[in-house]
Write a protein that binds this DNA or RNA. Sequence first.
RNA 1: GGGCAGAUGGCGGAAUUGGUAUACGCGCUAGGCUUAGGACCUAGUCCCGCAAGGGUUGGGGGUUCGAGUCCCCCUCUGCCCACCA
Length: 975
Amino acid sequence: MQYDHKKIEKKWQDIWAQNKIYTTPDSAPGKENFYLLVEFPYPSGNLHVGHWYAFAVPDILARFQRMQGKNVLYPIGFDAFGLPAENAAIKNKVNPRTWTDGNIKFMKGQIESMGTSFDWSREVATYTPEYYKWTQWLFLQLYQKGLVYQKETAVNWCPNDKTVLANEQVVDGKCERCGHVVEQRQMLQWNIKITDYADRLIDDLEPLDWPNEIKESQKNWIGRSEGAEIDFQVVFGESDIKYNYIFLHGKGGSPESDFWPWLKVQLERRGHRVQAPAMPNPADPSDEEQADHVQKNCTFDEHTILLGHSFGGIVALRLLERGVKVEAVTLIGTPTSGVYLDGKDRPSVTKAAQKGFNSEKINASSKRIVLLYDTNDHVVPLSDGEALVKQIGGHFFTAKAEKSHFNAKIEPEVLRYADPTLTVFTTRPDTLFGATYLVLAPEHPWVTLALGHKTVLENNDEVASYVDRTQKMSDMDRQTTKEKTGAQLKGVMAINPATNEKIPMFIADYVLPQYGTGAIMAVPAHDERDYEFAKKFGLPIRQVVSSDSDLPYTGTGTIMNSASYDGLSIEDAKKMMIEAYGRRKTTFRLRDWIVSRQRYWGVPIPMIHCEKCGAQPVPDAHLPVVLPDVEDYLPEGSGKSPLAKVDSFVNVKCPKCGGAAKRETDTLDTFVDSSWYFLRYTDPKNAVEFASREKQDAWLPVDLYSGGAEHTTMHLLYSRFWHKALYDIGLVKDPEPYKRRMNRSLIMGPDGQKMSKSRGNVIDPDEVVNMLGADTVRMYLAFIGPYAEVASYPWNPDGVVGVRRFLERVARAEEYVQAEDVASLNGPLHKAIKKIGEDITLMKFNTGISQLMILQNAIEKDKKIEKAQFSTMLQLLAPFAPHITEELWNKLGNESSIHTQPWPAFDAKYLVDDEVVIAVQIDGKTRGEFTIASDADKAAVEAAAKAAVAARLDGKTISRTIVVPKRLVNFVLEA
RNA sequence: GGGCAGAUGGCGGAAUUGGUAUACGCGCUAGGCUUAGGACCUAGUCCCGCAAGGGUUGGGGGUUCGAGUCCCCCUCUGCCCACCA
């Protein structure tokens, strides 16, 4: 047959589409379902070789599984929201929807040209309201579950374009568009609490059928580390100030309730004085009455610190209004407005709070005001805390209470803010005796607090300028390793709890604010970074783990210079020192997932901001919140998305109180869209659910997920988290979405470099397909090397031609078809059936193809093949080269498609050869070989082997003979 | 600096998992067909050597009758993360 790929490929693609042979039912009688998933593409406008590799090669497996009798779901769609569409909109003034529509249409044609067996009836695209309605709905499900919150977070800000920049828009710390230096700017953003799932995301990896390297990188990314938190007391100046604490408990409480008894012990252990009055009428308190009581029964001095929990905070402020002079006041979870999150009526508290506060008098009476708010507080809304600080001034900190509203028996955060105390995180508590200074991140809240009270630090200006300098730095600059910098916090010292020594405190940008507690104890003798810093600032270095190596030493050893711990192993010392000086603590590198994007082209975040009610979710009945068309896609001046300029979109009624409110104008990170798309494939047209339980049950979890290594951590982690959250809510039945995952290799340019326009080494698949055909390109990519390997293969233009040559030879073999059975082909044919089946299952397409080539070589030997044998060969080739095999199959007189045929079975009797070649070794070195009947007995084999190397055995004594059946004979000679 | 993966002909790679190293393809060489061309056919192609023979899986050591494969040390390369305490 003349192989004209252009004619054949178009013809069969049309016929397959017409006959809908790839439309997948949710169940098929007698067939097991198999869900093969590939990552859906971004509709950038043009398909590259990588897309072919991603879609056409797994298609071989899909086709094979179908021939094996499985009902295979192999779906495709488009991840259609994102930055490039918006950039194109700004640059070419085209509507991003129009741009995306056009791209999808064009790319569909390209994908169809591959001859893949995608079921297009299940196509999804994330930018359709039918899809993103459910993205919004699922987001709100997470919100209701308490997994979504707002937080001030730093973003990349271009002061020239007045816009927020994505990380990829920042090049060398500069704006990619205008070249201006990028700054960091705080913005209120929506976050999802993926960190709540950190442990499960690690632990649930264990049973999954995933390659080890993917599991490992996920574990690394999450970065669980076991260590300890240790508190360091801070003292001012040279004198040891002892404070006079007055505890003011809340409504319904007593000095014996909540954290008070524990806190009393902690403070008294540090030598402070504690007064803890039992307040009058705790069940129905009056602020003035309680203030009277405190004023009458407690003593005050210049180092008095008031600690007010909840209602007690109001009492504290009343005391200050009366002119009671104190050093500081710390308000812990203080209620003010009377709006309570738990809906409980508290008339006495509301009455007290609504009287308001005299901020002038309050500020005149105290040097420091600190308000500590629990991010999980279910009693007091965040806005209350913020409003109070706005009114009376002072410092507002959010912290995580052990129990909501600080109601646990032990609340370390309270101690941290009540007493000038710093908590550090360390994985080496055993080296505590060697901690000769502390280092805080410049952003540490304690530093902010100290700077706010200009009297605390002797070198306020110096510290302030270092903090400022750090804040201006981009992440990139900060993370580039360079010489250590920092500034000492002069006027304050910390006390090493183990040695009781006063040690200096520093701020330095090598300590990261987001990790651990944002503060470290520096042990220069056993940490390289601390060592560097200590050398630069002339700080003492004390070795506490014995070693003969040069400093800094991080290896194993025994403890020294640590009093009663001397001689212990590191592990034992760790345990004992945690018990004596700190608490066990696990931290994670993983941070919460910021999902807000100040962008137009994305899913609108379905939230409404009401002055009165705070942030409110859009009711389900109003979903989807449709992305409106806008006229200009440039961001609004304050950095918000262009949506902020659309009044008709922004202005809405509050769903709770009905008053005037404003819509959230940020859109969701596209990783949210792609976190659940594989669920939608199971039920793509459902208008009342994101996917029915029945359809999910038919297909989930995904049997095999094939994708790129670049998604190993982010996408895979996000979608696993998303699935677990849905599982906890009861929306999906499995805790893990993907049974098996594999990362494909990479295709490079002919020069071995990554394909890129600037290098000029880009291979355009359309051109190659035009010249050599889709079957050739598919098969070449499958042949180039093992598919599921951490590897990269250069595209070899000559190699492609070799594959084309092979297909031409197959086409020519049609002429060798004749009536009589060709016995000599049964061996190669049945071996091929077995081997190719195994290889495809293992995703080793390259060796499967080799086997086909070996078979083809055998056919060409005698240029004869029987019709049934040729049919079988075509079936073996069909998953790889669907068009040419269909054509040849059709020419053999078959009516139905080759792709609906079962996979051929092999006959074991043809797998064994009649004769085998056996190698003969002497002392393990190959010295000869002979051919013998494969069923020859051991004695005959040994005799033949001796004969084969007779000359070399002459005069030697054989001490041992090893016979490996059908392989080799090894004679071991006497020494 | 940390984690992971890897190193086999001129190139991409194969090796039944401890049993004849270099399958299959590319490239190269020679010859043939052809007016010509190669996206044709045939033969050859790990290295040294005329041969007999000897050597060879990044380097070194070990275990074993036998190691590309297992163990230890070293070198180099790729990918991901990166001042994570």
